[in-house]
């Protein structure tokens, strides 16, 4: 599947961004009800054979090139948006291997991985990258292995260390987050990290989600369609830059400003059909959990 990338899109300033009809058709709209509440919408990542956003392990769409450029811009202003604790170095290489294997298998016309033992050559044609490196040797890459590959994928990532009967968020990259700070939350347990999310703890959502995640098995990926809405196609809705983006129009709630909605990660609980027409962008945040 050849993708017609739109490298000139922007996610700040003049907000040059639009979805093609094909992009709207492949969008995994989760809006099958009139009201929404937190739930455990995790499920096995069964590949769709009909194309669409569920066909690949890591989805690449027409916004790929522009989103990678936006990520690079955020990291240039704040390198702390990507941090990994030292004991997660093996997880960094695992991430690189998983994403490179997946992208090259799912999109062979755009990505190629050649391997001779630990000598690897990675080609990313949409970003014009051609990198020889030695797997396991961080000095052979321009960034740490995790940052190197996460800069070439859409959406945010976290690295979780399973120990003491929970998951510790011991690394990640967050340049398109809905109001959570990687540098503040680094090293937290699953429950601490999700502490500020309202209502869901009382419903037992995180207990069950943690139990599900700790049983995700290698070779059996799971997915969760996690979405937020913004008026502008702004990806950097970070708490770090909240003073910058908070002043703009940013969410639908009948014109009322609700501070708690911003703090809550803005998983909208109100979505009248009319809002869809008004929406400049609906950006899905599809997170796949892998081992």
């Amino acid at each position: 599947m050849t993708i017609a990338f739109k490298p000139d899109e922007t996610f700040r300033g003049d907000f040059r961004y639009a979805n093609s009809p094909a992009a709207i058709l492949r969008f995994p709209f989760p809006f099958d009800q009139d009201s929404y509440m937190y739930g455990i919408n995790m499920e096995p990542h069964t590949r769709s054979t009909m194309g669409g956003a569920f066909a690949a392990a890591f989805d690449v769409d027409e916004h790929y090139v522009a989103e990678c450029a936006e990520r690079a811009a955020v990291l240039a202003a704040d390198p702390g948006r990507c941090q990994v604790l030292p004991h997660m170095v093996e997880a960094e290489w695992d991430t690189l291997e998983l994403i490179m294997e997946s992208l090259s298998a799912d999109y062979p016309e755009h990505f190629t991985l050649e391997r001779e033992g630990d000598d690897w050559i990675w080609t990313n044609r949409p970003l014009s990258l051609h990198q020889r490196f030695r797997f396991g040797d961080p000095s052979s890459l321009p960034q740490s292995p995790f940052e190197y590959i996460a800069r070439q994928a859409q959406g945010d990532f976290t690295l979780q260390d399973q120990r003491d009967g929970t998951l510790y968020m011991d690394g990640g990259i967050a340049t398109t987050q809905a109001d959570w700070s990687l540098s503040f939350d680094l090293g937290m347990t699953f429950h601490e990290w999700h502490g500020p999310v309202p209502l869901a703890h009382q419903k037992g959502v995180f207990d069950r989600a943690l139990s599900y995640l700790m049983r995700v098995r290698y070779g059996h990926p799971a997915r969760r369609l996690n979405w937020t809405m913004t008026v502008h196609p702004r990806l950097d809705t970070s708490p770090e830059n909240y003073p910058v983006w908070g002043a703009g129009p940013h969410h639908f709630d009948g014109g009322q400003h609700r501070r708690d909605a911003a703090f809550a990660g803005r998983i909208a609980d109100i979505l009248p059909a009319a809002a869809l027409e008004r929406a400049a962008v609906l950006h899905p945040r599809l997170s796949c959990q892998h081992r």
């Binding site: 294997e101 070779g219 059996h220």
Partner: peptide
């Protein structure tokens, strides 16, 4: 490693 529950 891609989704592949069984190895030969």
């Amino acid at each position: 490693m891609r989704d592949q529950p069984v190895l030969s």
